[in-house]
């Protein structure tokens, strides 16, 4: 392989994805899976070119599903689930509420890949979710109920409560101390908690885990192509990579 300086920049600019794709087409047939992995140029990804010099707004941070008021409630509630502290940012700063908004706007919010055929019967908890409502409907109802419950208990809306009062509302949902007719309060809480973790730690492409700071906080290196060099060694801190780094 020629290694003159002139070609160096161009060579390192070939993204791993393109490299694999091109080689895959070229080889085809029987070698399908394999041998390519061994010749991948590790560590040659250079994403500097992909960064624009101009600072641009994050147009991703707008709402697809929630109303502004619903969004504020979700933002405040998820911050209580994962608060900002001396360890690092909380759900608010990491963009978790935007993540949840975007998820509910899509196929996940519509339970597109779940079995939603009737008849619906109440089951045992070992049988899993048996409701007819979709996740986006559960959220709409639950957020309204959280507001009602906050007003009933503390005479204020959820976002106006103190942190302790917000925790009390969330605990009462978690423990089914709130009696709701259409949805399960604890079921909603579990859903909210799962979505919070997803928003903290999914690839930043989904709108949460802003700047990969969720990963940094726990020394998770994100999307690395290979750990062959460190697998036998002691603990290693690494700067995380995202899927964007592999485009």
């Amino acid at each position: 392989m020629a290694d003159d300086g002139k070609n160096q920049e161009e060579k390192t600019d070939i993204s791993r994805r393109k490299f694999l794709r091109n080689s895959g087409y070229a080889v085809g047939g029987l070698a399908v899976g394999g041998v390519l992995g061994g010749v991948i140029p590790w560590g040659t990804d250079d994403d500097k070119k992909n960064r624009t010099a101009k600072q641009s707004q994050n147009y991703n941070q707008a709402l697809m599903f929630f109303t502004q008021a619903e969004f504020n409630t979700v933002d405040a509630a998820t911050e209580r689930i994962f608060p900002n502290d001396e360890n690092g940012p909380g759900a608010h700063e990491l963009g978790v509420a935007f993540f949840i908004d975007h998820q509910l706007a899509g196929s996940y919010g519509f339970n597109a890949r779940d079995y939603m055929q009737p008849p619906f019967f109440h089951g045992e908890k070992e049988q899993g979710y048996q409701g007819r409502l979709k996740r986006r409907e559960i959220f709409k109802i639950a957020l309204r109920e959280m507001q009602n419950y906050s007003h009933q208990t503390f005479k204020k809306g959820f976002t106006e409560l103190t942190e302790e009062q917000q925790d009390k509302v969330l605990q009462d949902f978690q423990k089914d101390n709130v009696k709701l007719t259409t949805i399960s309060a604890s079921g909603f809480f579990d859903l909210l908690r799962s979505l919070t973790l997803e928003g903290l730690y999914s690839d930043p492409l989904y709108g949460g885990n802003r700047d990969m700071d969720g990963w940094r906080m726990r020394n998770y290196p994100g999307s690395q192509m290979s750990y062959t060099k460190i697998i036998e060694g002691e603990f290693k801190e690494m700067e995380p990579k995202s899927l964007r780094d592999h485009m």
Partner: peptide, 17 residues
């Protein structure tokens, strides 16, 4: 890296998790 009796060649695992 391994080539099996059918002639299929595959590369080594990268422990990518």
């Amino acid at each position: 890296a391994y080539t099996n009796p059918d002639g299929i060649s595959r590369a080594a695992c990268q422990y990518c998790a």
